[in-house]
Write a protein that binds this DNA or RNA. Structure first.
Lengths: 207, 207
DNA sequence: TCGTGTCGTTCCGTAAACGGAACGATCGTC
DNA sequence: GACGATCGTTCCGTTTACGGAACGACACGA
């Protein structure tokens, strides 16, 4: 891998240097020197120096050793996640859960007012579960989108193309839970329940 | 770094293989083969095979290339964060924010009923901001801890040793925001406001 | 002024992560 | 059953990230 050939990451090449800056920042906040951190983490000064300056392409093990000494998780230095569905929507992955029958990914989404977004079909059996916090959003399968306002919960099967479009002049804030069922000989386990409906505000609230 | 010599990570050695399992899992959920993912990500099949099986110690660039093709952030495969303060409390870093004057780290904490925890002093100027969701918790400076119930918000300067102890027979769920002010010639900028008080429930609610 | 200590960077030989190719295994298809 | 395609693993030469040592820059005391 000479250069980030086809890395679609927003700050692909700046990625390494961003991690370096973040680590240097964390280290300086804690008031310890490069030499000291290198000693504590059990890595060479050359390694840490190159890492902080973005001139090296560090190893997972190196990153673990360093971030553990800084008392933070690796996740906090590599950024929280990528943009989910293209350009209009800004979304970051907050957390991923791995359960017996499926993997869940929780995203925080912000749709700028007036934006719309078409997302291609996911793999079979994948479902999306969206809760709107603010604004008005029309989302769901491209042919039969659903309308959701603050507090509303919508869900649909995302193995077909689906859309997101804001209504009104307000930014839309929402959380999106994507469920990837574990494949069993090519066919997914059934979803939690049959999606394709709208729960009025509060009905799907956890607490 | 021959072996995870002094890596205090809970699953230090299992870390690499955990990342590999997670990536394999994500790949299989999407129904694409190892060869195909390697091709799309622009990495060698040998690299991806070794990565998924935990027999290699992948590079940051490799991880980026692969996770980007899987449509997830690097953070989602390396786990969300480390245990915060030792053994009793289970805590994961949800997100880290980098602002002009300070860095913030947001943790999700669960204290098992009956547990208590002593945490050493942080660097000067560091403050902790804790919101209790469920249960009853006594937390704060070791000499003058504060009491907080569901909905309560407590804050203190953590440049002295501080404690956490549950009250009652209920697990305590809470969020903890740690603020690391940026150092200016060795001295931190002032904290947001003078901490050391308790806000009654609701007073500090974000939403 | 001259040590003396520590800072972060650079140099260098070694270990290992990298990509490409070859490999056996497993599936459909004829 | 033989063939072809593709699966994931293993082998191998090249590239490069690694730790240790040497380096100049700077701060502090004698």
């Amino acid at each position: 891998m000479t250069s980030g050939a086809q890395n679609p990451y927003p700050t692909a090449d700046a990625g390494t240097s961003h991690v370096g800056r973040r680590i240097r920042s964390l280290r300086e906040e804690r008031g310890i020197s490069l030499s000291e951190l290198a000693r504590r983490a059990g890595v060479g000064k050359a390694t840490l120096s190159g890492l902080e300056n973005g001139t090296r392409n560090p190893t997972l093990e190196t990153l673990w050793a360093v971030t553990a000494q800084l008392g933070v998780g690796l996740a906090s230095v590599v950024g929280t996640g990528p943009v989910v569905h293209g350009t209009a929507v800004q979304g970051v992955l907050l957390q991923a859960f791995e359960e017996e029958g499926a993997t869940y990914e929780l995203y925080r989404l912000v749709f700028p007012a007036g934006s719309s977004q078409l997302s291609p079909a996911h793999h079979q059996g994948v479902t999306e579960h969206l809760t709107v916090f603010a604004g008005l959003l029309r989302a769901g399968p491209a042919d039969t989108p659903l309308l959701a306002g603050p507090g509303d919960y919508v869900t649909w099967r995302s193995d077909v193309p689906h859309t997101y479009a804001t209504l009104g002049d307000q930014d839309v804030h929402a959380s999106l839970l994507i469920r990837y069922p574990r494949l069993r000989n090519g066919l997914p386990d059934g979803p939690v329940r049959e999606p394709g409906e709208v729960s009025p505000r509060g009905a799907a609230s956890g607490r």
